[in-house]
Amino acid sequence: MELLYAMTTGVLTACGLYLTLRGRTFPVVVGLTLLSYAVNLFLFSMGGLTTDGPAIVSEGTNYADPLPQALVLTAIVIGFAMTAFVVILAMRARSEVGNDHVDGKKEDRE
């Protein structure tokens, strides 16, 4: 499970990073979203991966660390708000500048 999990996170990060480095705002927004998904997965795994463990410390030794789950929840909420904001900003930039390049250039050699 660890290997699959690590590979998923890695692929998501790589795709997010690639898209973030593109020149148009839409791929950049999608890239940032992917990056935040990867970060959420990464944060979640930081308490160690457990299966069938309750998220509270009880008598049993097998429990899931509840803190990363709380952190991920916070990160999701913040990331959601930020994505909404950046989408609106990209649309405003598109209408004000007249094109969707991140630098507002008319032409580029892509």
């Binding site: 705002t25 935040s36 970060v39 913040i78 930039a93 004000e96 500048v97 991140v102």
Partner: peptide, 23 residues
Amino acid sequence: IQASVHYVVLNLAGSSLFLIAVG
């Protein structure tokens, strides 16, 4: 708006990095 696009995108990437580091 131009300056904001750069500022927001950079800081969003920075936030992701912050979370990774904290993690």
